[in-house]
Structures are given as structure tokens and as C-alpha cells.
Nucleic acid binder design. Sequence first.
DNA 1: ACTTTTCACATACCAACGGTACGCGAAAGA
DNA 2: TCTTTCGCGTACCGTTGGTATGTGAAAAGT
Lengths: 197, 197
Amino acid sequence: MSERGVRVQQREQTRQALLREGRRLFSDRGYAAVSLAEIVLAAGVTKGALYHHFAGKPELFHAVLEEVQQEVGRRVAAVADGQDDPWGQFAAGCQEFLTAATDPDIQRIMLIDGPAVLGWAEWRAMDEAASGRHLADALTSLVDAGIIAPRPVAPLVHLLSGAMNEAALWLAASRDPGDLEHTREALRQLLEALRTD
Amino acid sequence: MSERGVRVQQREQTRQALLREGRRLFSDRGYAAVSLAEIVLAAGVTKGALYHHFAGKPELFHAVLEEVQQEVGRRVAAVADGQDDPWGQFAAGCQEFLTAATDPDIQRIMLIDGPAVLGWAEWRAMDEAASGRHLADALTSLVDAGIIAPRPVAPLVHLLSGAMNEAALWLAASRDPGDLEHTREALRQLLEALRTD
DNA sequence: ACTTTTCACATACCAACGGTACGCGAAAGA
DNA sequence: TCTTTCGCGTACCGTTGGTATGTGAAAAGT
């Protein structure tokens, strides 16, 4: 069986503990308010271990963010794949993203601290590799299928991505339970505007 | 004439110097990468002066952000007032915001660091008081005038605000000069989707 | 005119933080 | 069994945001 050796096994365990506690603390109180001392204490290791696995605090955050974005990307892709027609995949994916991004833990890391810590360009590149790619693919499919008018998809990707990000942040802070459905309906209408028919 | 006293005059001058250099450095290199020592050096004063005027680094940033947002708000309002019909005010205001937010200096402070430094809730409240309010007012007018279907405007405000913010960030990093016009056109189409007719 | 008070700001200092240099001991390889 | 590797702990450093206190000139009081 997988004789992985006690060395690599312990190594991975330490790395996972750092990622787990880092993610928990970052999402609870924000990147700037969490010290490395806290993280290594919670993970049961020392700063030496942290700097053995990650080049620094931003790189640890980068790894945490990547984990979060992959999760969201998988959720969106899973829901989209449940639909069979291109438009259904597109609409369902957007709505699922709106739901996923409403999680406060995900928000703080992915939407608030992400751009500020890593810079917008790097943050955008990571988002593109995770969930943003699905949005671009879906829009391209819709253009190819003639369901929406031919156009550059990049502007639409950013307009829609930004709209859903901000709406999710607002919904997480909102106390009116009807806001979610109103937002879904408004988003649905905006998406419908793209159709050719 | 305005016998303002040399005390209050010097006081205001120092405060303005701190705001000016703080804004310059924050927009150039980001909030976290700028030290208070740099700011007070550039402003020609000491940390004592800074802490006499502001409670701390976040409060200085808050004052800078407020200045930036007020400027953007005035630009949007000025262009909107140039139109006479409600729909024209709405559309022109949105397009002007897109242009204003493309300025890299404004972006870093208003869109990147703002939410991370002050928290999303406070950032949103400031945006609401500056330019966001105009968007809500315009949408409300359109509903009242029967130009767009009756609906809660809050979801739309956040969807559109987020769309324009993210698009502006993308445009500032884009090197294709056609992107701006494509984005304008896409935004125009999304806005048209709201009309009743 | 002289004294007192105010206050805008400078100076000196501190605790905490991110980061680095180096040592150690057990596991892996020879 | 000897050597090497390496995952990690320990001790330390420079910088940073923040604070406590001093100071001198302008304003206020008499």
C-alpha cells in the first residue's frame, strides 16, 4: 500500500494544519489582524515550521485563497454541469456563485483581503483560473451557439463577476431574507438582456 | 477680512499636507506598504503632528478615502446634471463613474484598500454617502417615472455598483484601447434590460 | 504690559510584528 | 552503522504603529 514514509506524512500534516488554522483566523478577523504567532500557536507548531513551508505571510494567504477559490469553482462547475443546455448552465452557475460567495468565511478571504494582500492583478489571475474561467467558457459557448449576440466576452465577464461579488457581500450583511430572491430576480433579468431573441 | 489667526491657519496647512502626501503614497504603493514615517517625512512634519490630527493610520486613510470618494461623487453628479431626462442622467452617471474609477490613483484607495482597511461595512457606508447615493436616487426616479419596472432598488444598486467597480479595475489594467468602448456598450445593454418598454 | 493658559507639534521611547540565522535530532539513504 | 537529509525549533533582529511627555509660541485673561 501507500508506504509514504513518516517524513512526508508529517510534513503534509503540518502544512495542512497551517492552512486550516490560517484559513480559520483569516476569515474570522481578517489578514492584517492575525499574527503569525497566533497561527503557529493554533496549529501547534512554531514559526520555523511556517517559514519552512511558506515564504512568508502573503504566501500562506495565497495558499489559503487558492484553496477557497478552488472550492467555489468546484461548486459552480458542479451545479452548471447539472444543466444540459448552455443557457441553463450559465444561469445556474451564476446563481450558484451568488450563493457560495455569501458565506462570510469565503467573503473575507476571497473578496475583501484577496485583492488588497496580493494585488488586484494576481487576485484576478487566481479568480480567472478558478471560477472566472467557467464564466468565460459559458459566455463563449453561448456566443458560439448563437444564444447571445457575438461580442467580446471579456468585458461581460468582468461586469458580471463584479456584480455578483458585490451583491454577495451585500447579501451577507443584509438582514432582510427577501433580498436574496430580489437579487436573484434582478440578476436573472440582467442576464436575459444578453439574449439575441 | 478673514482674520483666521496664525494658529488655525498653520493647523489646516499641516493637516492638508498630511492628507496630500498620504493620498499620494497610498495610491502609489498601497496602504500596507506605506509607513507613517514616510508620510510625515514627505509632509515635512513628525509623527506627533500626525497623531495630533488623526487617531491612527486607519483614520488617516479614512480621511483620504473620504476625499477621493467625494471627488468621484461630484464628478458623477456633475455629468448626470448635464442631462435633462431621468434615463439620460442615469446612463450618463454610470458611464462617468466607469471613467472616473479607471484612474489608478483612485482605484487603489477606493476599490482595493478601502474595504480591506476599514471593513466592507464601513467602506460601503462611505460609498453610499458619496457616489452610491446618486445611483440609488437615479434608480428610484426611474421607477417613479415608470421608465423601469417597479422593484426594490437596493439589489440593483449593488449589482450595478459592483459591475462598474470591477470593470473599472479591469480597464485600468487592460492594454487594448477597444476594451473601454466594448465595456461601455455591454453596460449600456445591461442597463437597457431594466426598461419596461 | 504682563501673566496665564492653550495647543500644535517635536522628541524619546515601547511592545509587537514579520522575517532571518542557525542549531538539533530523527528519518532516509548508502 | 555511518552519513546525509530535512522538517522544524530557538533565539534574535529591524521595522512598524502607537504612546507618553516635553516645549515654545500664540491666544486669552487681567
